[in-house]
Design a protein around this nucleic acid. Structure first.
Length: 588
RNA sequence: GCGCCUGUAGCUCAGGUGGAUAGAGCAUCGGAUUUCUAAUCCGAUGGCCGGGGGUUCGAGUCCCUCCAGGCGCGCCA
């Protein structure tokens, strides 16, 4: 069965067909939605075609407007204005088709089967073990989760993989710090804070004591070569961190299909290196300088393994193996990619990782290509979250903990809900959903690439362009529908000319535009396209709500028509928010 | 020094592969509730779209250049 698509898509296709009968060839993407004050629903700018024919755009528009046969189409009128061909919808047919689109599958309005049989791996969240979960990690986590939701909605088989940072030199540092200053009692009673303080102290003392860095590298070597003390301590750190992360993921409603640490790929590392060497992609070379951190001499036999990338236009080579024989992030990342491809056969892999790693990902992609791995990797970048006083730094102890932000968000939501006539349990639940929604929406409603200066009030806004505004609009739809228990949307049939107010048609148009926003979000990996669309929908609904009485509409037909709009708006708001990972409540 | 990103209203941001008069939120000012929840709605004020060149019928959008900020540039992740 072919995908029936949605109203606007069908309109654009029909229009392209109509123009073709007049010998005018336009692409569906050239057909524009009309947003502003012009009295039209769709428009085709004719400047390009007119120029090709040496005709004036306005003359062409007038000729087309006069010759198009609109009888039996979705269009009621065609007019020419300033070089544009403007079309208006047949309002009854417009309404009927949008209604039918919704009735086809109300809970999945906007979904498609585009991705059927196609798999995509998304790497998101991927926090570092033994470090606190800061607001910095939030972006990857919720953008990744939103993309997971969106691509799944379009039929893709999506594998969300949380690639935990549980390996690397940082653990050498932590082990070294624990051996020197660690406390068993502290570790048990308050693991996160203790590990953080050890990490901070390490970097503090390392400024004056150069032995520490060398000691840390040695601890990591011991870890990678299977030293028992290092291993067991490391395992405890990992356990403590994953417990904490699990708590936060539950709170955020974030889920993964796979959650594996970098260490999982340990046994593949030597294979990665030897194969790269065997293929001639990588080579051994003498380190060019003493280690930046340690400052000790380079031994005569020491070598590093690098993949030169000059031919890919990247000057900096990718290092696979350090001079002490241990692995690097990139080595483990290649091993991970190989594993993912073997296991899930994705058509592409998305990495939701901060912009500061852009060069690294270009190296990584180039290296994979050289190794003959031809599954494309897309770096879904996002801007850094900074504090007003500068970037966050775990080392300097200058971080905002995500848990604190969540608590504050919930607290602010509680203030608003305090006087409502609801049970304490309901109030707690609503505050949680509203508070967390506000945090997520603040991030997902703006474009990814811009950096964010952390600001409590902005992140936790409960009015205006915010999640609570959308959630509130949803509760209004529910509130109305609770009072009309007899209304059934699935069998609703629109009586022609039921809609009489401009607000009704504006709302219906807003609903009709929702499916496009999902496709746009999926193609650009930008969830904010959906956020913008449903925010607009909520505004159009609020205006409608203010102007159009539903339960007390003038006629039963009008009441039902408006009830349908209310029902559909509620569902679409809930769907759109769900795609962003945001919940709704019946009351607020 | 080189590379990538960003610069739109007082503040925070939207502005499909270039299209009609650049839109929101916050803030400020003025209105709206005996009526489906006011976390709401309506209106007003507020713009050399960082500066300057260029391409085009048409530029916030593309190209060049300068300025400002952010990030990155071989053994961290």
């Amino acid at each position: 069965m072919p995908d029936p698509g949605y109203f606007l898509t069908r309109c654009r296709e029909e229009l392209v067909g109509l123009l073709a009968t007049q010998g005018t060839s336009v692409n569906a993407t050239e057909v524009r939605d009309v947003e502003g004050g012009i009295d039209a629903d769709l428009a085709v700018p004719l400047f390009r075609i007119a120029k090709e024919r040496g005709e004036s755009p306005q003359a062409l528009a007038e000729r087309l407007a006069g010759s198009l046969q609109l009888k039996g189409t979705r269009f009621a009128s065609a007019t020419a204005l300033k070089g544009y061909l403007n079309l208006t919808f047949d309002k009854t047919r417009f309404a009927q088709e949008v209604i039918a689109d919704f009735q086809r599958d109300p809970d999945r309005y906007g979904s498609t089967r585009t991705g059927a049989g196609r798999a995509i791996v998304i790497d998101y969240s991927s926090p570092n073990i033994a470090k606190p979960f800061s607001v910095g990690h939030l972006r990857s986590t919720i953008i990744g989760q939103a993309l997971h939701n969106i691509l799944s909605f379009l039929g893709f088989q999506v594998i969300g993989d949380n690639h935990l940072g549980d390996w690397g030199t940082q653990f050498g540092k932590l082990l070294s710090a624990f051996a020197r200053w660690g406390s068993e009692a502290e570790l048990e009673s308050n693991p996160t804070a203790h590990l953080l303080s050890l990490y901070v102290r390490f970097h503090d003392e390392a400024k004056t004591n150069k032995d520490l860095e060398v000691e840390a590298l040695d601890w990591f070597r011991r870890l990678e070569t299977g030293d028992e003390r290092a291993r067991s301590l490391w395992q405890r750190f990992v356990r403590m961190s994953t417990d904490e992360f699990g708590r936060i993921y539950d709170l955020l409603g974030v889920k993964f299909d796979s959650m594996r640490g970098e260490s999982t790929y340990e046994d593949r590392l030597s294979g990665v290196i030897s194969r790269a060497l065997a293929k001639g992609v990588a080579r051994r070379e003498k380190p060019t300088a003493a280690m930046v951190t340690g400052g000790d001499e380079v031994g005569p036999d020491e070598t590093v393994v690098i993949i030169p990338l000059d031919d890919a236009g990247i000057e900096t080579p990718l290092i696979l193996q350090k001079s002490d024989g241990t692995s690097l992030y990139a080595t483990r990342e290649i091993a991970t990619a190989e594993y993912r491809i073997e296991r899930w056969h994705p058509e592409k892999m998305l990495y939701v990782v901060g912009k500061e790693q852009e060069l690294y990902f270009r190296q990584f992609s180039a290296a994979l290509a050289k190794l003959g791995i031809n599954v494309p990797c897309v770096h879904v970048t996002f801007g850094l979250v900074r504090l007003p006083e500068g970037r966050m730094s775990t080392r300097a102890g200058r971080v905002v903990f995500l848990e604190d932000v969540i608590s504050e968000a919930i607290r602010r939501a509680e203030v608003v809900v305090r006087d409502r006539d609801l049970t304490p349990e309901e109030k707690a639940r609503i505050s949680r959903i509203v508070g967390i929604g506000a945090i997520k929406y603040a991030d997902l409603s703006q474009s990814r690439i811009k950096e964010v200066v952390f600001d409590w009030d902005r992140m936790l806004a409960l009015d205006g362009d915010s999640a609570p505004y959308l959630q509130y609009a949803y509760t209004r739809t529910r509130s109305i529908l609770r009072k009309a228990p007899d209304f059934v949307s699935s069998t609703f049939i629109l009586h022609p000319s039921s809609f009489i107010l401009p607000e009704e048609l504006t709302l219906l148009k807003s609903l009709a535009r929702f499916p496009d926003s999902i496709v746009a979000a999926a193609e650009s990996y930008e969830p904010h396209r959906i956020a913008g669309r449903i925010y607009r929908l909520a505004r159009d609904f609020s205006a409608f709500y203010d102007k159009a009485p539903v339960l007390k509409a003038e006629t039963p037909e009008l009441r039902d028509a408006r009830l349908f709009l209310v029902e559909m708006t509620g569902k679409v708001l809930a769907t759109g928010l769900a795609l962003l990972g945001i919940e709704v409540t019946e009351q607020m």
